[in-house]
Simulated scan of single mutants.
Amino acid sequence: MVERKQSGILKLVLELGPLATFFLVNSRAEAWDLGRFLPTADLPADQVPIMAATCAFMVATVISLSVSLAVYRRVPIMPLVSGAIVILFGGLTLYLQNDTFIKMKPTIVNLIFAAALLGGLFIFKRPLLGLVFDSVFKLDAEGWWKLSLRWGLFFLVLAALNEIVWRNFSTDTWVAFKVFGTMPLTVLFTLTQLPLLQRHALPDESAS
């Protein structure tokens, strides 16, 4: 029980660590004079926080994925896809000195997940969420179909919200929304799916 609890805490740290790092560095970059460490030259002062945060985000993401691989001998598909896009769009952000790329990253990630889940249902006629989480919990076919549909639609909502926020509000507001908006919304949505999981859960064969 203790080992399982410690494992759960570690997974939470690995998932939230890069995001927390992104928020912290963006809010403290000027106070810490991080502009002089950036691999870009002659940045406007108002661009230093987001560029420094992007650098830190990329480094923290690589560390998180590396620790996950070392500890669990595998990296879950969703953090792996998200991490790859962080590196790609973060690199473009720094190279072109344009924060649009890192701001679009959540949109792209959520659209990829939505396309995979909804495409699996309506094109391939398979609830792909079951392939990812079948080892975590067991559901009947209807349960996997409903859960995949709901998560696919939720990812579309997250993509739309990200576009609305970064296009209409300041960078600091977008960063705050990314940390204090997206994560609580995801946790709340996950909790609302518990009744569905209970209704469609298969009997535990190991208990018989």
Rank of each mutant, 00 (worst) to 15 (best):
V86F: 12
A207W: 10
W166Q: 10
A141Y: 13
L94K: 03
K138L: 03
R36Y: 11
G119W: 06
L34G: 03
W145M: 11
L129M: 04
G8R: 04
Q47P: 14
V136E: 15
A207C: 00
A53P: 02
L38E: 07
R126D: 09
I112Y: 00
L194A: 07
R74L: 05
F57C: 01
N26K: 08
P127M: 07
I63V: 13
D140Y: 02
R199E: 14
L149H: 00
Q47N: 14
D140W: 02
A60T: 08
A176G: 12
L131D: 15
F101L: 00
S148P: 05
H200V: 07
M78A: 11
L121K: 04
S135N: 11
L128N: 07
G181S: 09
I108E: 04
S64W: 05
L188S: 03
F89N: 10
T21D: 01
D134K: 10
G181F: 05
A159Q: 01
L12C: 09
F22R: 11
R199H: 14
I123Y: 11
G91Q: 08
F124C: 06
S64V: 04
L94F: 03
A160K: 10
L92N: 07
F57R: 00
L202G: 08
C55E: 10
G152Y: 04
N162H: 05
R73K: 13
D140C: 04
G130F: 05
V175R: 03
L191D: 01
V48D: 06
L12M: 04
W32H: 06
M104A: 14
K105N: 05
T190K: 05
Q47D: 15
R36H: 14
L19Y: 01
L111D: 01
N110V: 08
F169I: 12
L69E: 14
P18C: 09
M1A: 13
V67N: 09
G35T: 01
K103W: 02
K11V: 10
N110C: 08
L158G: 08
Q193Y: 04
F23M: 14
L131P: 07
V75W: 05
L202M: 09
W166L: 11
A20Y: 08
A29K: 03
L88T: 09
L96D: 13
W32A: 07
P39G: 08
L14K: 03
K125H: 09
R74M: 12
V48A: 06
H200R: 03
S68A: 15
G83T: 05
G120V: 00
D42H: 13
A159C: 02
F101M: 05
R167N: 11
V81H: 01
A176N: 14
